[in-house]
């Protein structure tokens, strides 16, 4: 009886967005009297960080500090339309819509600044700290707070913008089935190192190495968190989660989520994650979606590592001790039948 170590890897290509009847999202942006740019969205932040990404895209496009951006996702009844938070589409669709809205608002901002400073709008630039300045003449400029006040109360202008990203529906070609269902594809590879106890059948994931090609990681810390949190969920699917665990009688099985087995903090593998950035032409600042795919590659990587460790090829999730032991028994029977 021994603890057997093995390694395996698996790769995934994953689409961003979908196109059932088109896949749009909208964004509206306007400046308050004091120069806070409010982004109105119906896109919901359920922890994936779309509010942060939307604020980053707006601040970058406007040329203003991120502190000048406020994201309002309060009401899907009254907000601009969003198809929803699914298909790893949020960063791509919403990010593009926000950039379009912010670009329109930026143009108005520069027009009003041009009137206020009595210069040509084309000669103005933003410095990223909140000032709009005349190129080559740093002393000639105006802060966004003063500019927003002037726009409201002197020039009668709204500094605002509208944005939408629409992926048009793609009908399959009847003869070939050819279609264009997504907007781009992200790619990833996970290598897993596991230890299999051939007496108990327990599999422990020791380490995961995650490499992700994400277009561009708009927020590297959040992208890393998504990859590693998603990989944990992959480990959870691979080794633990099932509503039908093996028990002699169904009566002894779990009845609700309190009895639904998931890995806890003591079951964390050591993770190493890195990003390859090849900006996508149609992505917001090059980004692709990496929401759902992060749970995918770890599962077959762990299956391959189990095979490498002990020769058991499992093709049903989760890879429970019972399945591992049955696999080991089958191998033993086979070797007894066919002595070498």
């Amino acid at each position: 009886m021994a603890k057997l170590r093995g390694r395996g890897y698996a790769s995934v290509n994953y689409p961003t967005g979908m196109n059932l009847g088109g896949d749009p999202s909208q964004a509206l942006i306007h400046a308050t009297t004091t120069g806070t740019f409010v982004i109105s969205l119906s896109s919901v932040d359920l922890g994936q960080g779309i509010k942060t990404i939307a604020a980053q895209c707006a601040a970058e496009t406007l040329g203003l500090p991120i502190e000048n951006v406020l994201v309002d996702t309060a009401d899907t009844d009254t907000g601009p339309h969003c198809m929803g938070t699914f298909a790893s589409r949020g960063t791509h669709r919403v990010g593009n819509a926000v950039i379009m809205a912010a670009a329109e608002a930026r143009a108005v901002m520069l027009e009003v600044a041009a009137e206020e400073l009595e210069v040509d709008a084309a000669d103005l630039e933003t410095d990223g700290t909140g000032f709009i300045r005349l190129k080559g003449a740093e002393e000639k400029g105006i802060h966004i707070t003063d500019l927003a006040l002037a726009a409201h109360f002197k020039h009668g202008r709204t500094i605002s913008g509208r944005g939408i990203y629409l992926k048009e529906p793609s009908v399959p070609v009847p003869e070939t089935g050819e279609m264009d269902p997504d907007s781009c594809q992200a790619h990833a590879c996970t290598a897993a190192a596991v230890e299999v106890d051939d007496e108990t059948g327990v599999v422990e994931v020791l380490e995961l190495y995650n490499a992700y090609e994400v277009g561009r990681a708009l927020n590297p810390a959040m992208a890393t968190q998504q990859v590693e949190g998603g990989a944990w969920m992959g480990v959870s699917h691979a080794l633990f989660e099932t509503t039908e665990p093996y028990y002699p009688s169904r009566d002894h099985g779990p009845r609700d989520f309190a009895g639904y087995l998931m890995p806890g903090p003591a079951d964390i593998p050591v993770q190493h994650s890195l990003f390859l950035e090849r900006p996508a032409a149609n992505g917001p600042y090059g980004a692709k979606g990496i929401g759902e795919m992060t749970a995918n590659a770890p599962i077959p990587a762990i299956a391959n590592a189990i095979f490498d460790a002990c020769g058991v090829r499992l093709d049903s999730m989760p890879f429970t001790p019972e399945r591992v032991l049955r696999g080991l028994d089958a191998l033993r029977r086979k070797s007894e039948e066919e002595p070498c």
């Binding site: 968190q225 949190g229 990989a231 944990w232 969920m233 998931m262 806890g264 903090p265 003591a266 964390i268």
Partner: peptide, 20 residues
């Protein structure tokens, strides 16, 4: 000690590592 302390608390997003 930290792992033991938080072991009665479920997190479904982070994978626990950042919390530890």
């Amino acid at each position: 000690d930290v792992i033991e302390a938080i072991s009665g608390n479920v997190c479904r997003c982070t994978g626990y590592r950042p919390i530890v």
